[in-house]
Simulated scan of single mutants.
Amino acid sequence: MRRSTPYRRLKAGAGRHPVPNGAQITIRELLNHSSGIPNYEDNPKYLAPYLAGDVAHVTTPQQLVALGTALKPAFAPGTSAAYSNTNYTVAGLSRRRDSEALQRRVLQVKCRGGVP
Score class of each variant (00 low, 15 high):
residue 27 I to H: 00
residue 66 A to Q: 15
residue 84 S to E: 04
residue 59 T to V: 11
residue 111 C to F: 02
residue 46 Y to A: 13
residue 39 N to W: 09
residue 5 T to L: 15
residue 110 K to P: 05
residue 21 N to P: 08
residue 100 E to S: 11
residue 19 V to W: 03
residue 16 R to D: 06
residue 62 Q to F: 10
residue 51 L to N: 02
residue 95 R to I: 14
residue 60 T to P: 04
residue 10 L to W: 07
residue 50 Y to H: 04
residue 72 K to G: 03
residue 48 A to N: 09
residue 22 G to S: 11
residue 41 E to M: 15
residue 110 K to Y: 10
residue 73 P to L: 10
residue 11 K to E: 12
residue 22 G to Y: 07
residue 97 R to M: 12
residue 61 P to E: 06
residue 75 F to S: 03
residue 104 R to K: 14
residue 39 N to K: 09
residue 36 G to Y: 12
residue 18 P to A: 06
residue 95 R to M: 14
residue 107 L to M: 02
residue 33 H to G: 01
residue 71 L to W: 11
residue 38 P to W: 08
residue 80 S to M: 10
residue 88 Y to V: 11
residue 92 G to W: 08
residue 17 H to C: 13
residue 106 V to P: 03
residue 52 A to T: 10
residue 32 N to A: 00
residue 59 T to D: 05
residue 25 I to R: 13
residue 69 T to V: 13
residue 77 P to I: 09
residue 16 R to H: 03
residue 98 D to V: 09
residue 43 N to W: 13
residue 31 L to M: 09
residue 52 A to V: 11
residue 66 A to P: 08
residue 32 N to M: 01
residue 77 P to E: 03
residue 29 E to L: 03
residue 61 P to L: 05
residue 43 N to I: 06
residue 116 P to R: 05
residue 4 S to V: 06
residue 5 T to N: 12
residue 62 Q to M: 04
residue 116 P to M: 00
residue 87 N to W: 00
residue 92 G to A: 10
residue 111 C to A: 03
residue 65 V to T: 14
residue 25 I to L: 03
residue 30 L to C: 07
residue 27 I to V: 07
residue 43 N to H: 14
residue 22 G to D: 09
residue 42 D to H: 08
residue 22 G to T: 08
residue 111 C to K: 08
residue 70 A to G: 13
residue 100 E to C: 06
residue 74 A to W: 04
residue 55 V to W: 12
residue 31 L to W: 07
residue 65 V to S: 14
residue 34 S to A: 10
residue 101 A to S: 08
residue 114 G to V: 02
residue 83 Y to Q: 05
residue 64 L to P: 05
residue 76 A to P: 02
residue 15 G to K: 12
residue 25 I to E: 07
residue 44 P to M: 09
residue 116 P to I: 00
residue 47 L to A: 13
residue 73 P to C: 08
residue 43 N to T: 07
residue 34 S to H: 10
residue 112 R to S: 06
residue 60 T to L: 11
residue 75 F to T: 04
residue 10 L to S: 06
residue 46 Y to Q: 09
residue 73 P to N: 09
residue 111 C to Q: 07
residue 96 R to K: 04
residue 45 K to N: 15
residue 36 G to F: 14
residue 48 A to Y: 06
residue 96 R to G: 00
residue 91 A to D: 01
residue 94 S to Q: 07
residue 101 A to M: 08
residue 81 A to F: 01
residue 81 A to V: 01
residue 45 K to A: 15
residue 23 A to F: 09
residue 46 Y to K: 15
residue 108 Q to C: 00
residue 65 V to L: 15
residue 28 R to G: 07
residue 3 R to Y: 01
residue 21 N to D: 14
residue 40 Y to S: 15
residue 94 S to V: 04
residue 54 D to P: 07
residue 72 K to H: 05
residue 105 R to Y: 04
residue 51 L to I: 01
residue 115 V to H: 13
residue 67 L to Q: 13
residue 36 G to Q: 14
residue 98 D to T: 06
residue 21 N to W: 12
residue 15 G to P: 08
residue 24 Q to S: 15
residue 96 R to Y: 02
residue 3 R to H: 00
residue 22 G to A: 11
residue 79 T to M: 15
residue 19 V to Y: 07
residue 114 G to W: 05
residue 6 P to L: 11
